[in-house]
Design a protein around this nucleic acid. Structure first.
Length: 423
RNA sequence: GUGAGUGUAGCUCAGUCGGUAGAGCACCGGGUUGUGGCCCCGGUGGUCGAGGGUUCAAGUCCCUUCACUCACCCCA
């Protein structure tokens, strides 16, 4: 039997309704906040990711699905969306009319990591990016948008962490301070951290090895090394969040894996998710647009992991399954033919009608109606055909009424429409 | 890439000291004329992950291998 590729998954019909609902909610909200959808391809030139994400990151070093196309060029299945959005912003000169653009995109990303709970090789993200705004209130607004979305989904047990990574002016100074702190403490660090020390010392803050954690307790904090501009930027982000009563936790150890981040970074953590507990994350990337050959415009964005969101919403999937409205139980060939016509007519009026083509016993057809969860069953057999009226049964109240054969479709359609407008 | 755990029916799982495969749920049918859920009865469904070995005999013991899961790493 041919099976799924490792780390990939199918989204089954039972869950697809919830996915649709979540996507609808987020589109609505993003558009209210002035975002427009940008649809971008899944494949890009490898160099785009190498240059934006950073060549020494794990993603670029060992996690990308890269292959040589028949023409000889190196292509990569996108491991994240920001690079592509920036590429499109530059390539189509989206900054020309107005440098301020708010864009969102939804779709799959690919990273070849070892799969585990909440981590797949193809995973889905909702991405929002804002270009052209330096103001820290833009950072706060984006975070508020993200948290509003979480709120609308009625998620509990989630925490917002924020931090500032500084800018090209102050981050090097901090790195130096960190390096000199680490000098002479190599004994206390694990082998991974020793490797990180030269490459990307900020990552040591993330290490879970107890000895490293202990050592890093006394390490200098980035927040104490921010330049004045970065410091006041971060202050305004915080006071803006305060102003809207948005709770957050300042986490100086929040270091993000992609090289392009500057100043504000944030993550939404969910305690019930296990080891992969980040549902969403993002930050500011002021140098990226220019680095990729565009104008010197700042950027800020976030990504929401839809798969992880779904894990948090598990159990609510059944509320969004589209059940049929009515099941027509027809006994005998003549009745089946009439029922077949009714089903088609009802669907034309946007009523979800189902029937059985196998001429089963009424009992088994009723059982089927019950399983489908319909509110109405329509019964028609020789008796009803002679009588000129079918029997409409309300499955919850068990009330039955006669409906003349001529009026069946309109009556049923009206009845169901009326019920929907109540809910 | 590294480590640990788990593989028996569609799903969740039992299976004793090695003796020829089981339950619950699901599915199909029945419980007197043409009416669902609850209850009762019956039925379909298995290469016991795969390959090899030991044995009169292997789901069970041994070896190999594959898959899945969780964790490390990293991140959504």
């Amino acid at each position: 039997m041919i099976k799924l590729v490792k780390g990939f998954k199918d989204i089954l019909p039972e869950e697809a309704g919830l996915w649709q609902h979540v996507e609808m909610l987020v589109r609505e909200l993003l558009e209210d906040f002035g975002f427009a959808e940008l649809r971008i391809p899944i494949l890009e030139q490898t160099e785009l990711f190498a240059r934006s994400i950073g060549t020494s990151t794990d993603i670029v070093e060992k996690e990308m699905y890269t292959f040589i196309d028949r023409s000889g060029e190196s292509l990569t299945l996108r491991p994240e969306a920001t690079a592509s959005v920036v590429r499109a912003y530059i390539e189509h000169r989206l900054y020309a009319k107005n440098p301020v653009r708010k864009l969102y995109t939804i779709g799959p990303m690919f990273r070849r990591e070892r799969p585990q709970k909440g981590r797949y090789r193809q995973f889905y993200q909702i991405n929002a990016e804002v270009f052209g705004l330096h103001d820290p209130r833009a950072d706060a607004e984006l975070i508020l948008l993200l948290m509003t979305f979480m709120g609308r989904l009625e998620l509990s047990g989630i925490v917002l962490h924020i931090n500032s990574l500084g800018c090209p002016a102050c981050r090097p100074r901090f790195k130096d301070a960190l390096k000199s702190f680490l000098t002479g403490r190599s004994e206390q660090l694990c082998s991974d951290c020793l490797r990180r020390r030269d490459k990307n010392p900020l990552r040591i803050f993330d290490c879970k090895v107890p000895a490293c954690k202990e050592t890093m307790q006394d390490a200098p904090s980035i927040l104490e090394h921010l330049c004045n501009t970065c410091q006041s930027h971060f202050e305004i982000v915080k006071t803006s969040l305060d102003r809207f009563q948005m709770p957050y936790q300042v986490n100086p150890r929040l270091v993000r894996g992609l090289d392009y981040y500057t100043r504000t970074t944030f993550e939404v953590l969910a305690e019930t998710l296990g080891a992969q507990d980040a549902v969403a994350g993002g930050g500011r990337y002021d140098g990226l647009v220019k680095a990729l050959g565009g104008p010197d415009q700042p950027g800020i964005g976030f990504a929401i992991g839809i798969d992880r969101l779904m894990a948090l919403l598990a159990g609510r999937a059944q509320d969004f399954e589209k059940r049929p409205h009515i099941f027509i139980a027809a006994i005998g060939e003549q009745a089946q033919n009439i029922a077949f016509q009714w089903v088609q007519d009802l669907r034309r009026q946007r009523v979800r009608a189902e029937m059985d083509f196998e001429n089963r016993s009424l009992k088994s057809q009723m059982r089927r109606a019950d399983k489908l969860g319909v509110t109405y069953a329509l019964i028609v057999g020789d008796r009803e055909l002679d009588d000129g009226a079918a029997v409409l049964r309300n499955m919850t109240t068990k009330e039955q009424e006669k409906v003349s054969l001529q009026n069946v479709v309109t009556l049923v359609a009206n009845r169901i429409r009326a019920e929907q407008s109540i809910h």
